[in-house]
Design a protein around this nucleic acid. Structure first.
Lengths: 399, 399
DNA sequence: CCAATTTAATTTGCTTTCCGAATTTAAATG
DNA sequence: CATTTAAATTCGGAAAGCAAATTAAATTGG
């Protein structure tokens, strides 16, 4: 069977198309992929036999057409299980997902603060994955892949982590350590890319092949999807949107440089100015809330802080638009306190700052989501690999 | 023959590899492309029969190995002819190139200043191409393709020019008009992309698949090569590096906005400040020369102008590095007066402004070239299309 | 209720592509 | 001049995938 396969397989193309389509009849598959109906029949028969896809009985909704009715196909959820893991400073968040992308369970465990050795971190992750699986009545060995996202610079092709705030050494092949520890293939990526992945798989980027995701939390991140793939820079560490410069000799950034976008719009940047304008407050959240309130209430100093952050953000975003000319930008984050960055004023400033062409300016949409979106992105990431393996090998193994 | 071809053809893969390799034996082709030796033999035999490639007798230099000697293959120059055309404000520059990429002749004709109708511009181009061909004893009909670069925003896939300083109407399908007028397929592109193309085909980007080219002339342009292809943005009009913003509410740009990089480093930007600092001069070139001289001579105002331009340039470039993480940046231009932007001080500023990772900072190289480089890029661009056609159709037609 | 119609899916026969293994070719070497 | 070595070619076969013909499953009109 694994004989003549070369180049990208029609099997994989069809499997992906079915995955994307949700439910789709053979004839549409043929049309969308350009593969002949005859071949679609043959390949889908294979996929059915391998248990990777299923026929859906009949959609009564789209009734009343003459002729032989279409039979929808969909991914067989039961074929494989994957886990998605997000490592943050103080906790590990996980989701369990089936082959169809349905979330089965989620889980969350605290992670001791500070830096860990690769073995220790792998241990924490493996334990959490086992607990996640157990929650749904499975074992780690039932999984076909585990996607892991963590902050830092990750070289995906090599699987190594150049640097991460969670690790006490540099340049570790954490993917290998994890795979070894769990007995299940682990796939690592930078967490900003995972959000892009999540948006592509089940967010606002669904079905789009080119868009940009900007994340707002403690820092400012960016994920770039080009041609349906995550763009990682030529060496796997690009898309440092937060550290693009918006002001010569500007405000001091956490990274030690001056004028980074992050130094104007991140939480800590607002805080330090808020302290100056309004005096200190008890907690971070309180102070930010107080700042925004004061700005809306007409306090000149507060308004000026917020306005400048907004304009700097628009400027940074305009640079991205001028360079990439995307048709869609997704502003994604879980923090409500950054609402002001999505304001009409900021969007107007953005439109004013991009090169004017006949084409419409890019669509900018806001997507607020919870903590688990990261983990879901990680799971979607693992799912891509498992799909690819499943398509290539006929049948990998199953739950 | 044109029956079952689907997906990317091995014929094209091999033709490209031979083109890139310059001269390469079959066994290396097999190894580099992953195509089996048997198939390489079959396909190269086809290509030889079609006259697209040639065997090179024998390299005595690499002598003294046992066994049957390798036979190098190369592109057959005589198989096809292409022309490369660059439209600038006041002239048309052309080169005639054979299938191998060897430049046979060049030509240059004045172009009446101002905006032209599509038909009129096509007429000027067609005449110039005919003259170019005649110079080498050919006719336009001997050409297999003509690549044309012009300033403006060009939608390559549609062949339309959204806007160009050379045209008096918007959204014209100039490629179609030209193809019709000449009887030879015309391929249009933005001129910044052509420089990238030229660098890739026979410049410092040769053999590289990912790099960025920044051009300096009247304005500041950028060409992006990702995965061996020109990246054009999702709608064909990205890479407006000159209009990325480096200063909020900054200097006024030609485009009407404020704070564009171009408004700090372009010729006109330097001029207007030089006039203030040193008083007016007779010509543009004189004034720029005087400015740089004064700066080097210790004139404070002049030095400040030049230094700021340099720092702004470094900042803009750093943003590109932080977003793309390229391994190579080529600063390309024909103007000597921009030397100061390549200075050690600017490069140091750049290194200081990019996110620090373990990987080495990107290589930055300077490539100065003459006026015809644009046209050569256009020819290389056409060559890609002709190669593709030739690979697909067996033999297209020849000189 | 049964033909006729319509559309989806499948089957059949065939073409094309490309590989592995065996063979041939063209040199250097002893 | 036989032997060795490495490149190139030939040969038979296997797989992928297409077009055309056929079958299947529904609706519609008489």
């Amino acid at each position: 069977m694994a004989f003549g396969h070369q180049r990208e397989d029609s099997r994989l193309i069809l499997l992906r198309e079915i995955s994307q389509g949700g439910r789709i009849p053979r004839i549409d598959l043929a049309e969308r992929t350009g593969i002949s109906r005859a071949t679609v029949t043959t390949i889908t028969a294979d996929l059915l036999r391998d248990g990777l896809i299923e026929e859906i009985p009949r959609e009564d909704s789209a009734a009343a057409t003459r002729g032989r009715p279409r039979v929808d196909l969909k991914i067989a959820g039961a074929a494989h299980l994957v886990a998605g893991v997000k490592i943050s400073g103080t906790r590990i968040s996980l989701v369990l997902m089936d082959f169809e992308g349905t979330q089965l369970t989620d889980h969350e465990v605290p992670l001791p603060a500070g830096r860990h050795s690769p073995a220790a971190l792998a241990g924490h992750i493996a334990d959490a994955v086992a607990a996640l699986a157990a929650k749904a009545g499975y074992a780690t060995s039932d999984l076909s892949g585990v996607g892991v996202g963590l902050a830092g610079t990750v070289d995906v092709s090599a699987g190594t982590v150049h640097w991460s705030p969670s690790l006490n050494v540099r340049n570790v092949d954490l993917a290998a350590v994890l795979t070894d520890r769990m007995g299940v293939p682990a796939y690592l990526d930078n967490d900003a890319n995972l959000v892009a992945m999540a948006e592509k798989a089940f967010g606002l980027g669904r079905g789009r092949s080119d868009f940009i995701v900007v994340t707002l939390e403690a820092g400012v991140g960016m994920g770039i999807i080009l041609g349906g793939e995550i763009y990682r820079g030529t060496r796997g560490c690009g898309a440092e949107f937060g550290h693009t410069k918006v002001q010569l000799e500007g405000a001091l950034c956490r990274c030690g440089q001056r004028g980074c976008l992050e130094a104007y719009v991140a939480e800590y940047a607002l805080l330090r100015e808020a302290d100056t304008a309004l005096g200190p407050d008890t907690t971070v959240a309180n102070q930010i809330a107080r700042l925004l309130e004061a700005a809306e209430g007409g306090d000149a100093a507060a308004a000026s802080i917020v306005a400048r952050a907004g304009r700097m953000f628009a400027m940074g975003l305009a640079n991205i638009v001028n360079i990439f000319d995307p048709e869609l930008i997704i502003l994604a984050g879980e923090q409500m306190q950054f609402d002001y960055l999505y304001s009409d004023a900021v969007m107007a400033e953005l439109r004013k700052s991009i090169v004017q062409v006949d084409a419409a300016p890019p669509e900018v949409v806001v997507h607020k989501w919870g903590n688990l979106m990261w983990a879901r992105g990680a799971a979607a990431y693992a799912l891509e690999f498992v799909q690819e393996r499943a398509a290539r090998e006929g049948r990998v193994d199953a739950g």
